[in-house]
C-alpha cells in the first residue's frame, strides 16, 4: 500500500514540472536519454506535429520544392503560393505534366486536389505522407 502511495505521489509531482519547468521548443533530448524512442533519437515526425514541436504551419510551405525520391521516378516540382494556390509539375521523360489547384492545411494535414497528405517541415525539407507512401522535397526558393 505504501508503495502505491509513493507511485501516486510521483505521478502527481511530474505534472507540476510543467508549471515549474522552463518551457522550450526544442526536444528535451540529451546524450543518454530523453528520445521518444527511449534513447537519444527522435525519429518521430508525426508526434512532433501533434505536440506542436514540429513545424507544420501553412506559411512555411510557401515557396518552391523539388522532390528527392529514393527511386529513379519522375522529378516533382511543387510551388505553394501565399494566395493558397499551388502548382505541381511532374517531369516524365521531359514531358512535364502540370496540376494546379488550391491547397489548405488542417493541423498536420495538407489538403491538395491529389489527396490529403500528412506533412512535416524540418529546416528545408518537406515530408508528405499519403497511404503509407512518403514523398520528400527540398526547398528551392522561399
Amino acid at each position: 500500500m505504501k508503495n502505491r502511495h509513493i507511485c501516486l505521489i510521483i505521478s502527481l509531482i511530474i505534472p507540476l514540472f510543467i508549471v515549474c519547468g522552463q518551457g522550450g521548443n526544442a526536444d528535451p533530448v540529451g546524450l543518454t536519454g530523453g528520445g521518444d524512442d527511449g534513447y537519444i533519437y527522435t525519429d518521430h515526425p508525426e508526434q512532433e506535429e501533434e505536440t506542436g514541436k514540429g513545424e507544420t504551419s501553412a506559411d512555411s510551405l510557401i515557396g518552391s520544392w523539388i522532390s528527392v525520391q529514393d527511386t529513379a521516378g519522375p522529378v516533382i516540382y511543387l510551388t505553394f503560393r501565399d494566395d493558397q494556390s499551388y502548382v505541381m509539375q511532374i517531369d516524365i521523360e521531359n514531358y512535364p505534366m502540370l496540376h494546379e489547384g488550391r491547397y489548405s492545411t488542417d493541423g498536420n494535414q495538407l489538403i491538395l486536389n491529389e489527396g490529403i497528405f500528412i506533412y512535416q517541415i524540418d529546416a528545408d525539407m518537406l515530408m508528405m505522407t499519403l497511404d503509407g507512401y512518403v514523398f520528400v522535397f527540398r526547398k528551392v526558393t522561399s
Binding site: G33, D37, Y39
Partner: peptide, 13 residues
C-alpha cells in the same frame, strides 16, 4: 521502444 520512450527516454538505464 514505446515502453522506454514513454518512461522519459530511460532506455540506456
Amino acid at each position: 521502444e514505446s515502453r522506454v520512450g514513454s518512461m522519459g527516454g530511460v532506455g540506456y538505464y
